[in-house]
C-alpha cells in the first residue's frame, strides 16, 4: 500500500478563536481585471472623442443631409427593395425547402440545383446578370411552349434597374432562406410527426400545425440574420443604378465631395433599420418560444396574460 506524502496527511486543524462564517466573505482580488477594464475604458473614450472632435466627420453636414429629400427617397427605396426581395425569399425559399425534403426525386433535384446555382455565385454577379438579361434573351414572350406566341416584349424595356434588383436580390435570398427553413424543419423530433400522424392528422396539417411552429424557433434567428444581410445587400443595387440609399448619398457626395459625412448618413440609416429589425426579432422569438422552457413565462406582462387566458379557458370548461 502506497503511503500518502507526509505533507498531505500530516496537518493540524487551525485553531481559531471564533467559528468561521463565509456569509460575509469579501470578493477575491482581481488586479488583472482592473487593469484591463481601465485600458478598455480609456480606448473607448478615445474613440468616442475622435468621433466627436475630428472635424473630418463634419457632423453639421451629417445633420444637414440626414433628412434631405434625396436621402429619404433612398431610404424608402432600400426599404422597398428589402421588403419585396424578402417576400420573394421567404415564399420561394419555403417552396424550395419543402421540395428539397420531398419524397419526389424530380422536385428534390430541381430544388437542390436551384440552391446550388444561386448560392454558389456572387450576389453582385447575379444582379449585373439580371440587369443585362437582354443580352442573353432579347425578347420575352408568352405562348405555348415550342408553339405560337401570344405576346412579347423586349427584355431591355421590361427589365429596369428596379426589376433587376428585386429579382436578383429575391432569387439569391430564396436559396439561402430555403436552407434556413430546411435546417429548422429537420430539427423537429421525428416523434412529433409520428404522434401527429397517429392522431389522424393529414400531411398538410402535420406540416403547418406541428412541424413548422416548432421549427420556427430554429428558423427565426438565422432568418433575421439574413434579412439584416439583405438590408445591407441592397447597397449592391447601386452598381446597376438603382436609386437606393447608398446610390443617393453617392449622388450627393459626387457633387459636394463630402464623402465621409454622407457615408455616415447612410450608415446611420442602415443602423436605424437593422435596430428596428432587432426589436421585431425579439417579439417573434418570444412568440415561438411558447412551451420551450420548463419555467412559466418569464416576464410579468406575459405571466399576467397567461393567467387571464388560463382563467378564461377554465371558466369555459366549468360552464359547459
Amino acid at each position: 500500500m502506497a503511503t500518502l506524502p507526509s505533507n498531505q496527511t500530516d496537518f493540524e486543524l487551525p485553531l481559531t478563536q471564533h467559528p468561521v462564517d463565509v456569509a460575509h466573505a469579501l470578493a477575491p482580488r482581481r488586479p488583472a481585471t482592473w487593469v484591463l477594464s481601465i485600458i478598455t475604458v480609456v480606448v473607448a473614450a478615445q474613440i468616442v472623442h475622435l468621433f466627436l472632435t475630428n472635424p473630418n466627420f463634419e457632423w453639421d453636414v451629417v445633420g444637414q443631409y440626414l433628412n434631405s429629400e434625396t436621402v429619404l427617397q433612398g431610404v424608402v427605396m432600400t426599404l422597398f427593395l428589402t421588403v419585396t426581395a424578402m417576400t420573394i425569399g421567404l415564399v420561394l425559399g419555403g417552396v424550395l425547402a419543402v421540395c428539397r425534403l420531398s419524397d419526389n426525386t424530380l422536385l428534390r433535384v430541381l430544388a437542390s440545383s436551384y440552391i446550388w446555382l444561386f448560392r454558389g455565385t456572387p450576389q453582385l454577379v447575379q444582379l449585373i446578370f439580371w440587369f443585362n438579361i437582354g443580352l442573353l434573351v432579347p425578347v420575352l414572350s408568352i405562348g405555348i411552349p415550342f408553339g405560337p406566341t401570344f405576346a412579347s416584349i423586349e427584355s431591355n424595356t421590361l427589365v429596369t434597374p428596379l426589376l433587376a434588383a428585386i429579382v436578383g436580390l429575391g432569387l439569391h435570398d430564396a436559396a439561402y432562406q430555403a436552407e434556413i427553413y430546411r435546417a429548422g424543419l429537420i430539427s423537429v423530433d421525428e416523434g412529433q410527426l409520428e404522434a401527429a400522424q397517429a392522431l389522424g392528422m393529414k400531411p398538410v396539417r402535420v406540416f403547418f400545425r406541428i412541424q413548422l411552429p416548432q421549427a420556427m424557433r430554429f428558423i427565426v434567428p438565422p432568418t433575421f440574420n439574413s434579412i439584416i444581410a439583405l438590408v445591407k445587400g441592397t447597397s449592391l443595387v447601386s452598381v446597376i443604378g438603382g436609386a437606393e440609399l447608398l446610390f443617393s448619398v453617392k449622388e450627393i457626395y459626387s457633387q459636394t465631395y463630402q464623402t465621409v459625412p454622407l457615408l455616415i448618413v447612410a450608415s446611420i440609416w442602415y443602423l436605424f433599420i437593422t435596430t428596428v429589425l432587432n426589436g421585431v426579432q425579439f417579439f417573434i422569438e418570444r412568440h415561438y418560444g411558447r412551451g420551450a422552457s420548463r419555467k412559466s413565462s418569464s416576464s410579468l406582462v406575459a405571466r399576467f396574460f397567461d393567467r387571464r387566458a388560463a382563467e378564461r379557458t377554465l371558466n369555459r370548461g366549468m360552464e359547459s
Binding site: 409520428e194 397517429a198 406541428i210 416548432q214 420551450a292
Partner: peptide
C-alpha cells in the same frame, strides 16, 4: 388512423 389511438414511449406531446 383516427380509429387507432397510440401512446408513445417518449409521450410526444406537442410542446408548443
Amino acid at each position: 388512423r383516427r380509429n387507432v389511438g397510440m401512446v408513445f414511449q417518449n409521450f410526444n406531446l406537442f410542446p408548443h
